[in-house]
Design a protein around this nucleic acid. Sequence first.
DNA 1: CTGAAAGCGCTAACAT
DNA 2: ATGTTAGCGCTTTCAG
Lengths: 363, 363
Amino acid sequence: MADKDALSMQDDAMRDDALAGRRASSGTHIGFPMGSGAGVTLTDVARAAGVGESTASRVLRSHGSFSSKTRASVLEAAARLGYVPNRIAGTLASTGSKLVGIIVPSLANIVFPDLLRGANSVLGKAGFQSVIGVTDYDLVGEEALISSLLSWRPAGLLVAGLEHTPRADAMLRGAGIRIIEMLDTDGAGIDMVVGFSNRDAGRAAARHLIARGYRRIGYVGHDLALDLRAAKRFEGFRAALAEAGLQVAGQMIAPVPSSIAAGREALDRILHETPDLDAVYFSNDDMAIGGYFLCLSRGIGIPDRLALFGHNGLEVARCAPQPLSTIRTPRVEVGEASARLISSDGPPSIVTLDFELIEGATT
Amino acid sequence: MADKDALSMQDDAMRDDALAGRRASSGTHIGFPMGSGAGVTLTDVARAAGVGESTASRVLRSHGSFSSKTRASVLEAAARLGYVPNRIAGTLASTGSKLVGIIVPSLANIVFPDLLRGANSVLGKAGFQSVIGVTDYDLVGEEALISSLLSWRPAGLLVAGLEHTPRADAMLRGAGIRIIEMLDTDGAGIDMVVGFSNRDAGRAAARHLIARGYRRIGYVGHDLALDLRAAKRFEGFRAALAEAGLQVAGQMIAPVPSSIAAGREALDRILHETPDLDAVYFSNDDMAIGGYFLCLSRGIGIPDRLALFGHNGLEVARCAPQPLSTIRTPRVEVGEASARLISSDGPPSIVTLDFELIEGATT
DNA sequence: CTGAAAGCGCTAACAT
DNA sequence: ATGTTAGCGCTTTCAG
């Protein structure tokens, strides 16, 4: 690979002017074309600056003491040679790495990019790099990812959800680093837990619908075997209905990941099966927006003929002509708070961030 | 850090049963609690299996030759000790790493998670880990990220866009690794380029509107100084209008990132300033959906009174009661194709993936 | 304030 | 088929 790259890079170098001042090379590294700063090592910089390696290292990390004179010459040499530190070597030599692993089930649902966004912004400011892994909602895949990420010796690991395979659980416990489980507080955590109770969110949704006077309430969801948090919401939802002497008047579960199209189709089907529903609780806003679009298309009056309730508080739900009644979840905040915990000491703990019920125009 | 972690992990170990079989420790590594597999090294495994380090290494990577007998004992020892390979050390010792850097401007717009998703799925299958960086549409931030990612000695770098600061450009050229610039083919690339022409997409949108008979065409966009690709679309759009002897009949540019709310508000304002528009081209689907929602709220007839055209082909746009006329961009495919190029040899080249104009119900 | 030297854990020749 | 031996590039004592 290196040689091939060198080849293609040489082409690039030909049409390049910006490199003029950086042609120096250590000469001890084959496989890199002239003009590449990638082969320059700390030793090269130290030599060029006429100082020892350790001094150069101290200067470059502004750690320890050195004269401003040496400082200048080291910095100059580094700049002139186009030195790029090798954090792989640095990490191996020192104790801890500046890598943080983040594992999410999916990137197709904006919820997880939001989570990543929050985490990454805080991590970046603290000098960490995020290494991501996507499980596709597969716990076995998660196990493989955990082991793979752990092999990079990250400073910590952020994982969505509390459920893991036994082996994954053991690896996380034995890793010797901070583990943050996110977005769910309904269950036991391994180390730190940051999120909210999905069960409570489902409960809140049910209570809201009941308070509004709805009694023939249906549920439209997506694959619950995969999305465990959606399953917990549904569970809380049914529990609250039961407390009010009610039960789900009909349900339709699309055996696919959540999507607008799936929500639209599932609502269509449940309305065929159970035409007299007066309200529907959706597994999330994507599904709910699909339902909303169906109602718009069919001229089904909202909320008089049918009420809709979602989950997440996505922008599209809040900006719709009739803002969707839903629950805003603190996704970005969970990411941020989780990232902050990476560098914390202290015992395992649970951080609960509140969700907020949004009374839209669809209930 | 390590000590604090060790401390908190000890708490965990206490409430842990799954680790029972993995309590062995090398004993040579302080800072890790008993029961942690994180301190076990290849040396430990080799010793426990009664073989040399290199033999253990060969077995664990199934590379080279060894008897099935040694294989078994090494694997057994590794499993028993809870060995987790240290890829940091492995990377330093071998030539190339299995990390790939991916730099995107944002995670707030689903376009980039889509890109990441495509790239990550291909990279994962090839044994690579994605290290991500988010620039927040800031070229200087991108420069910092590039240098930071390069310090992890990635096998390659995927970057969104062709525009970089001079220093960033120089670093990319000198990196000696495969550089893939994504989502834009309107300009010169550094190494590999994978994407489509945003200028052509803008052109196609204009031609479509003209062919449909619209003549008073406005533009509603978001911060173009930041979103260079949206700017190129607008440029192509105006060029095509000009070729037809037309020009933009009004424009409204929200000085913020694109969003549904921004699109809604911007359309509202442009309709005040220029009430006689018969069509509007939006900088992307998020903005366009905002416009669509405004029309729905206001009872503005679509497409008779006003036609709407977006860009990206998001699900929400395609599933709306009136599917939005837009251009579907191959975001996931760009990510996939880009990831495949990481391991390719061959000279710098450009891969163009086609976009597709979707004739919805809003034009 | 600075330099020399000893590794970090692993891979990759090179022997055997 | 397996063991021995150098490093990879950097950080970190430990002397001076």
